[in-house]
Nucleic acid binder design. Structure first.
Lengths: 232, 232, 232, 232
DNA sequence: AATGAATGAGTTTTCATTCAT
DNA sequence: CATGAATGAAAACTCATTCAT
């Protein structure tokens, strides 16, 4: 038992070290020796835990995505409406990347563009969230929240693409500093574009109750105005 | 004249070969010898035209983006309204990537994530379009087309992020087959989310003429429905 | 202990092999593979011990000069008179080069003319002896042994220049066969040129006792006559 | 005739350019293209005049030593006494190196240590002076000026070795600034070491004419004291 | 079980030298 | 004849991966 735990701890340590090195130097420029040094072990030890350098690379998201994905899975049932689910998933992504900048770096710069990553167990895990997102969008269409001619796949691409684009900007250009302020503006804008009655309603409501409807969206956008994407 | 032309032709040939090899194997796995072979020259010839392997890599977008960017620059003044400009730029991107899949591959998989690319002449050229896009969005805000609390940078990230996400899906997963069908759905959805009166108008109209207003947007979405994003 | 010794032994082996190869082919024409082969190891092993080819080159004198310089340092205090010290140093140089023809070759043909060698740890070590030589000459001037208008730096250049010239002749032309026979003639001739009273005394004496004074120097020169510099 | 002259001029131009490049970068690091550029011709032109890079290297001393050697040959008969000849030759060397620092650099750093240089026509030319120097020394021995047990070859090594040592110091360490001030101190010191009666004579003379005799040597040494070899 | 040490395999890059124009 | 262009040959250096201890 202790034996098993020690091994597990050491593996985690290696994974953490690898994450740091990969994020810092990039997969290609990072060496196994770099990682071993950072982990405080000898290089051959790495091969006791991972078949190859690439195997080590792919184990990082497997490990790190496990818990967030599980959390999301557990939380999701508590959200009923499609919009809430979508917002919750966006929040999940952006919080994760915000709180794990090294992991964000790895995902955006190394994994997203790696053909072999697609065959990976980690990819499948991560894909589950993307599938849930897709299903949520489709739910919204089915239940009449979103326009029936909405292209769910396109909408998902919009959501994920925007998240990724903002993240890469943060990583490579340093802007925006904070990711989570984008949760609402992002979701609001996209959903506004596909919601059946949101606008109509808000408009109709707004005639009589402009404050409230404006507040709903205005809040998030005010937050945003304070920290806009300065990157150019 | 012939001398200059021949050199230029050979350089183009090398660039084309490099594009193919880089797109096929990725920058890291591609070797200068691979490229030389494909170009039908000896390896040292490459160094007569390009300082380093990375220089060769970065020359590809410099070369290939020049003409599309110029074209866009020339065409843009003919579009007056912000929405038209934005649509035009999106079309420019998607057509370029559609018609140059290898180039799309290079941009999405190798350049977008390359820190050194940011210091590149080609990056600046490409950035010009992104800046124009941003300005167009801001114009739309200024002239009252878009809601005044729109975050222009976020909207740009949405547009570019979506384009990139779709492109990467096409490259890595083979779906969607066609990029250009997304021009309208993409623009429509995003603009719908930020337009001030579009919906209201369509609502007003829709009361009396629901068909028509629906048709306006519906058309593009019908196109889309025929070729939805199957990727999952 | 054994581990450390083995490493040290292997390093020495590489240094020895490098010395042989460098002396035989010259630094430029020698390849790391040549050296590795001679040492019976693979080429990358060299890089485990030495950062670069030049680093390996410069480590040779560092290693080989250490002991002779230390020996000289230890022996020097036993010599009181400037002349004795000078003679001792000359003997040190010539014996070293005599007994280590490969090292002599390296020093004379590769290191002496290498600008980077001047920034080297080994150079500083070696320089210590040259400085001691200079100090000895100055001592001789101070204590009245040598003429007070003697240019100590010139004298040192004469001593070292002569040693080097003779060594290069031996290396490139094969003559003289033996270096150590030059210790006395060299020192005697130069010191004769700068000694204050030796000659005057000998002159005064020589008027009455020419034989003796001649004998004094004649002895050493007789040694020399038996093995003169045939090189031409 | 003009044709011939033009070719000759171009050859000289190339040689001059090669000298500059070789002196600046060293033989190994210099490229034929460097030289061609400096000479304002295309690289293949070099091969019209010189078989190989090494051939070009060896042609430089052939060209540049020709005139000084001839001059020396012409001047030498005017000097009768061995000492005068020797002094004249030393002066020839030091003046040449003083006035042609690039050539000095080439000789000291590239040629002196090049095994192939020994088989060269230029080497033979240069060697003539060394032989004359040797003969002069022997003359001095024969005519009783120098002690009969003087090792002429050693003395020559002393003279040439000192010259070379001082030159290398100047080239690599920047000191001494001026070479020609060493002509007299060098010759005087060495000859003092081998002259039979030099000291006696100078002493005898000094009794009656101290000024003059002192001046002879003193001047040069005073000069020297003002600009001593600072290099250490 | 862990590691110091070694290496096979490969890559970018350089340059003297030679053609074809 | 001059040259722009090309290349064969090589060489330093790297690193993921594996043994022998």
């Amino acid at each position: 038992m202790a034996r098993r735990d020690i091994k597990e701890a050491r593996k985690d340590n290696i994974i953490e070290s690898a994450l740091q090195i990969f994020a810092e130097k990039g997969y290609t420029d990072a060496t196994m020796t770099d990682i071993a040094k950072k982990a405080g072990v000898s290089t051959p030890v790495l091969y006791g835990y991972f078949k190859t350098k690439e195997d080590l690379l792919f184990t990082i998201p497997e490990k790190l995505s496990e818990e967030p994905v599980r959390t999301m899975d557990l939380a999701l049932p508590y959200f009923r409406r499609a919009e809430e689910k979508i917002r919750m998933i966006v929040q999940g992504y952006l919080s994760l990347y915000e709180n794990n900048p090294l992991y964000a770096s790895l995902v955006m710069l190394e994994l997203k563009t790696n053909r072999n990553f697609l065959k990976t167990k980690a990819y499948i895990t991560i894909q589950k969230v993307a599938r849930t997102l897709l299903e949520s969008i489709r739910e919204g269409i089915s239940d009449g929240t979103f326009k029936e001619d909405t292209d769910a796949l396109l909408v998902r691409s919009m959501i994920l693409g925007t998240i990724e684009h903002i993240c890469i900007n943060k990583i490579l250009l340093g802007e925006p500093k904070n990711l989570e302020v984008y949760i609402d503006p992002l979701v609001d804008t996209i959903l506004d574009g596909i919601k059946k009655q949101s606008k109509q309603v808000s408009i109709n409501l707004s005639i009589h109750n402009l404050e409230m409807s404006d507040n709903t969206e205005g809040n998030s956008e005010k937050k945003l105005r304070k920290k806009p994407l300065k990157t150019d």
